[in-house]
Every structure is written in C-alpha cells, then in structure tokens.
Amino acid sequence: MYLSSTENGRSASPEGLVENVSLLSLNRDRFWRNLTLAPAIVLFLALTVLPMVNLVVLSLHDIDWAQGLSSWTYVGLKHYASLAADSLFKASILNTLVFSTVAVSVQMVLGFALALLTSSIVHGRLFYRTVFLLPILVPGIIIGAIWKLMFSFDFGVLNQMAGAIGIMPRDWLGDATYSLASIIVVDIWHWTPFCFLLLLASLETLPQDVYEASDIDGATSWQSLWYITIPLMLPAIAVTFVFRLILAFKVFDEVYLLTGGGPGTSTEVVSFTIFRRFFTEDRPGYGSAMSVTTFALIALMIIVVSAVTRRKGSTS
C-alpha cells in the first residue's frame, strides 16, 4: 500500500519511503485533528458567525408585520446612513466612551493596588481576597436595587449621611451633573474585583529570583514596582484592560436599573440605545445596524489597544 506512492512518481529509496510514511502519518494526524476540531468549529460557526451574518442581513432590511406574517424589504445601507443623524446614538457612543474609559481605568488602578496589598499580606490573605471579591458575586439586579436605594434623593443613605454633616442633599441619579458619575461609581464597585482577581493571579506567578536580585542590587520598593513588577505584568494588565473595556462598552443592567438612560441623554449608553431601538421601538433593521456598528467600534478599539500595549511591551 505504501509502495503505491512510488507509482505516483515518488522516490522508492529507503529515505523516500520514510518520507512517504511520515507524510502519510502527518496527513492522518491532520485529518484526525480536523475531525476532532470540527464539532467545535461547527458550534462556533452556528453560535457566533451565523448570528453575526444574520445581524448584518437584518441591518439591510426593514421588517413589517401584517396578517401575522413578516415582510422583509431590502433597504441597502439606509440604516447605516441614518446612524450619523441619530442624536441619541451619538450621545450614547460618547457616554459609553467616557464611561468605559473612566470606569475601567479606575478599576485597573484599584484592582492592581488591591492585588499588590493582598499579595504582601501574610496573615488573613484568604479573608481579604474573599471580601474584595464579594461585589462581583452579587447579581446585577440586586446591585441596581441596593444602589438605587443608596442614591435615592429622599430616602438614600448617601444624602442622609451628607445631611448629618450639614451638606445639602444631591440628586445623584436625577441630576445630569452627577448621574453618569454615579453609574461609574457603581460600576467601579462592581467590577474592581474582576481586575483584582486577574491581576492577583498574574502577580503571584512572577519569578521571585528577579526580586531577590533587585534586592541585592539595593532597589527600593518603588523601583521594584516600576522596573520589575509593572513590565512583567504588562501582558496581564493589557489582557485585563481589554477584557474589561469590552465588558464596560456593553454596560446595560446598571443603566437600565438606575437611571433608564436619563435624565435626558446623560446616562444613555450604546447597549441601552440598541435595546430601545431594536426592541422597544420594534425596529430590528435599524437596531441591527447599530449593533453591527458598535461591534465594529469595539473591534477597532481592541485592535488599537492591543497594538499600543504590544508596542509598549516590546519597548519595555
């Protein structure tokens, strides 16, 4: 059977035979590899690519209902062209950028600081880790209820505390001056543990011999942090940052539960606008165009952030 390859013009020498056998084995390996990967690829296509293709197709149509049946009308890029004139979408993009940048930056700094603190604690490390992780375990709906009560103008603990020290009550959620900042505070409280967890895991894998060498060389704690810890952790920092940025860009529950996007457009975020246009207004075509555009924006953001961190990493 192996010799049949000679009939196809391949060498019949012992080396050639070995080569043929290893090629065949490689092909067989490749076949099995592809076969075993196939279910995952099919699943990926079915759950990720197909819905995306469906979303793009939907974004090129208007859908109407009559007699219980839907009719699809092809409208080309009309929905994409309309996005530029949609003041709500523009406001939501701007708010989302501000929200995600500020919230994630603060979460990274706090998460990193907490990770550093926790890793240096000898006694009660498990206790502190558990306490710092608690907010991430609370379901979004509970977080919304808790913070809505805390921020309440009339009954909230924040205004009662402020009143106790003679500060006028603030309308944390109903005044455009504070509303986005209030949502950011809630998001920081909720998601800092996520950054903390990932950064702590990375921190604990750093090689100790480098620190020992730096100690011998007389490096201060600050120098160790700046010249050893941060450069070594840069890949983990970048991954955590990008991961959180993606999640922050998709923020929905906190806004939905606390402000409903208001007052005015002050806390309108892109997921909420998509929800409104797609579901509440029942405009699936237009809502899909918004979703595809947002997807493209997030992809672009990831590419830029990855490129910057890669360049920074190679420089370090």
Binding site: G174, D175, A176, G262, P263, G264, R277, T280, E281
Partner: peptide
Amino acid sequence: AITELGFNQIISGQT
C-alpha cells in the same frame, strides 16, 4: 421614543 426623551430633556433643563 421621541416624546419620552424630549419631555424628559425639557423637565431636566437639558433643553
């Protein structure tokens, strides 16, 4: 969708 935003913007003083 238009009036909910519009009236709220007026009431909040955004416009």
